[in-house]
């Protein structure tokens, strides 16, 4: 089994990349996180995490076309790799598993 565990922001970003499908790049991810999770992260933090995920082999990237709104620069479009999907699934399993073991009473009380 892989010893890689996903960090909270890592997991969030992986999910956002999946959701954005063909338009996942740095700034778009940040905006989506703000929208979905009401959580403000800096662009730098997103880039940092993305680079780390890429090093781990959980995502891969390729350059899209240059656009005017980026000042003639290309986007780096990110996609989740098979390993990335596996890591996400594993993380989800662990959590679901745990949730199912918690008595309903405890959750409702709080």
């Amino acid at each position: 089994m892989s010893k890689e565990h996903l960090g909270e922001l890592e997991e969030l970003i992986l999910l956002v990349i999946l959701k954005l499908e063909k338009d996942a790049y740095g700034l778009a991810i940040r905006q989506e996180i703000i929208k979905q999770a009401q959580r403000s992260v800096t662009i730098g933090a997103v880039h940092g995490t993305v680079n780390r995920l890429e090093d781990k082999g959980l995502i891969e990237s390729e350059y899209g076309g240059a656009t005017e709104e980026r000042g003639g620069r290309r986007k780096r479009i990110l996609t989740v790799t098979a390993a990335g999907l596996k890591a996400l699934e594993r993380s989800k399993d662990v959590k679901m598993n745990l949730w199912q073991q918690i008595p309903v009473l405890v959750v409702n009380k709080s």
Partner: peptide
């Protein structure tokens, strides 16, 4: 390239 592109877009936002 990527960083500066994002920053450029962000500025516009």
């Amino acid at each position: 390239e990527e960083i500066m592109g994002d920053m450029y877009e962000y500025y516009e936002l």
